[in-house]
Structure formats: C-alpha cells, structure tokens
Simulated scan of single mutants.
Amino acid sequence: MNEARGKYIALISNDMILTANWLDNLVTCIESDPQIGFVSPGANYVSNYQQINLPFNSLEEMQQQARAYNVSNSTKWEERIRLMPVILFSLTERLREIGGYDSRFSFGEFGDDDISYRYRRAGYKLIYAGDTFIFHHGSVTTGIDQRQNNSLQISRQIFHSKYGIDSWAEGLPNMQLVESLKSRWTPKPTVSFLAINCCVGATPLAFKTYFKQNGASNVQLTSLTNQEKYMTDLRTISDRTLYYQTMADIHQQLRGERFDYILFEYGYPDFIQSYNQEELIHAYLSPSGHFIT
C-alpha cells in the first residue's frame, strides 16, 4: 500500500478469483461521486448482506455467469455503514488520507469495520457495488486464527475499546424492519423520514436505499438519539442529527414537523412507559404516514 503510485488501489483478499469487468465496474462506481471513499463488490461467500447467488457447478461456469452478471448498473449500488471488502477499491490518496489499516487488528477481523468507520468519519461514503460479482473461497486465512486463537472475539473487543460501539450488535441493519416497509411503500419522489434510536444508523440507511431504489429521488433523513456516542456516525448518513433526553426535547427540536415515515428501532417499550405513543404519532406523523417499530 505504501508503494502504490497509481490513481486507484485495489486491496484483494488472497482467496479471490477475479471475474470479467470487475475493475471497469468499480471504477465507474467510484467515479460517479467525489464523496465516495471506497467501493466493494459482492461475492458468493461474504457476510453483511453482500452475497450474490449465481448458479454454477465449476469455475469455468462461474466465469460465464459472472460475465453475464457484471454489467454496470447504478440501481444496484447501495450506501452502507460498513462494508466487508472482499476487494477494497479506493483512490490511493483517499486510503492514505485516512491512514490505511490499523495494525491493532492483526488477525484481520474487524479491521474492515474499523476502516469503514474511519472513511465515513472523514466525510466519505461507502458503496456496495451490487452489480459486480467475484468468487470468494472464504476464510482461507482467518479460519485458522478463529479456531486456534479466538480471533473474532479478540478483534471485536479491540473495536469496542476503540469506539465504544459493538460493530455487530449496534452496526448491522435490521432487515426484518426493511422487509416490513415494503408492504407500506407508496412510490413518491420526496420522502421525509424520522429515525429514532437507531444506534449508528445502519437500519435507516437501508430504508433510505430502499426508498431511492423504488422511486424516491429526494429522501430527507432526520435522526434522533438519546445516546451521545452515536451522534458522530449518525451525522455521516443523516441530513440532520438531534439529541434528546425528554419528550420536551423532541418537541423543541422538531416543532411540529410531519414525517412520511417514523422508524423507532431500539428501546421502544421503555420509551412508551415514559411517554405517550399517540402523542408522538399525532404530533409528527403525516396523516398518510407510517409508524414502524
């Protein structure tokens, strides 16, 4: 990485088989927006909702299927809180700007989470390029450390010590809530969206992606949280981020605004013990809006 001199840099895991058009597609994606920090494709074996399932029984057939699949398509690009970069594709200067990988994650795990957070906190977007498939054998290197050294839990704790955030418990989207959105979605060009207590914002960002992929060209996301530790990351994905401790704080900051969707992800039972659900809905949900929890 230190010796790289080209405009772009691709960090490729050692258990990958590259496919047709992978590089052209990733260049097209990253050049589409100067605020993109890095992009990563999908694969047959990967977590974080980046798996692409193509039918094949041999590596030759895999390459044929990948050639047909790997057609650049911006509707398959998704902004994410974190990426599992089977390939981390970035402008070289941007990778240097954020300082490369943190050597504390010596086993490999959670180094990807860490670099994702640092790109976002530096003002850049992370884009999953779902229009690009590569082949991943999976855990060829890290599997041994996971079995012999408990590397997953050690690395998870290093991340938590650095950020005060559990990247798994607090950084993954709730896709069941996203699925529940589909039955309530009426296509419209502009959507106002209030997300309450959604940790670092992975779930509202997935909502925002769904809105945009299904007819909304303008999505205005307001995030409310009662934990200050989430403010930094919520600001990276929200149009407005607000902190509250009481219902009076909410009223003061929102001042009767109306939203098409209100998402309340964590702590809802405790919230309604202290505050009136109907008060929240009546005050801030538009007449044809949807409340999701």
Results as ranks from 00 to 15, higher is better:
Arg5Met: 04
Arg5Leu: 01
Tyr8Gly: 03
Ile9Val: 13
Ala10Gly: 02
Ile12Ala: 06
Asp15Asn: 00
Ile17Ala: 09
Ile17Cys: 10
Leu18Ile: 13
Thr19Pro: 00
Ala20Trp: 03
Trp22Thr: 15
Leu23Glu: 05
Asn25Lys: 00
Thr28Arg: 13
Ile30Gln: 12
Glu31Arg: 07
Pro34Lys: 01
Pro34Ala: 09
Ile36Asn: 00
Ile36His: 03
Gly37Lys: 13
Phe38Pro: 10
Phe38Cys: 09
Ala43Gly: 14
Ala43Glu: 12
Tyr45Pro: 05
Val46Gly: 06
Ser47Asn: 03
Phe56Gly: 00
Ser58Gly: 09
Glu61Gly: 00
Ser74Ala: 15
Trp77Thr: 01
Trp77Val: 06
Glu78Cys: 13
Arg80Tyr: 06
Arg82Gly: 09
Met84Thr: 13
Pro85His: 04
Val86Ile: 08
Leu88Ala: 08
Arg96Leu: 09
Ile98Lys: 08
Asp102Cys: 02
Arg104Asp: 13
Ser106Gly: 10
Gly108Asp: 10
Gly111Gln: 00
Asp113His: 03
Ile115Trp: 02
Arg118Thr: 11
Tyr119Pro: 11
Arg121Asn: 15
Gly123Ser: 01
Thr132Gly: 06
Phe133Arg: 05
Ile134Asp: 02
Phe135Thr: 01
His137Gly: 03
His137Lys: 01
Ser139Gly: 06
Thr141Cys: 00
Thr142Ile: 11
Ser151Glu: 07
Ser151Thr: 13
Gln153Met: 00
Gln153Glu: 04
Ser155Lys: 06
His160Asn: 11
Ile165Phe: 15
Ile165Glu: 14
Ser167Met: 11
Met175Tyr: 14
Leu177Gly: 09
Leu177Trp: 02
Glu179Ile: 07
Leu181Glu: 11
Lys182Trp: 08
Thr186Ile: 12
Lys188Val: 15
Pro189Gly: 03
Thr190Cys: 11
Gly201Tyr: 08
Thr203Arg: 01
Thr203Phe: 08
Lys208His: 11
Thr209Tyr: 02
Thr209His: 05
Tyr210Ala: 06
Leu221His: 08
Ser223Pro: 01
Leu224Phe: 02
Asn226Lys: 13
Gln227Phe: 11
Asp233Glu: 11
Leu234Pro: 04
Thr236Met: 03
Thr236Phe: 00
Thr241Arg: 07
Leu242Asp: 13
Tyr243Pro: 05
Tyr244Thr: 05
Ala248Gln: 10
Ala248Tyr: 05
Ala248Gly: 02
Gln252Arg: 14
Gln253Lys: 01
Leu254Glu: 07
Arg255Ala: 15
Arg255Ile: 10
Arg255Asp: 15
Arg258Ala: 11
Ile262Tyr: 00
Glu265Leu: 08
Asp270Phe: 01
Asp270Thr: 04
Phe271Asn: 13
Ile272Ser: 09
Ser274Asn: 12
Asn276Glu: 12
Glu278Cys: 03
Glu279Thr: 11
Leu280Phe: 00
Leu280Met: 09
Ile281Thr: 14
Ala283Glu: 14
Ala283Asn: 15
Tyr284Leu: 14
Tyr284Trp: 07
Tyr284Met: 10
Ser288Pro: 03
Ser288Phe: 03
His290Leu: 04
His290Asp: 05
Ile292Trp: 12
Ile292Met: 15
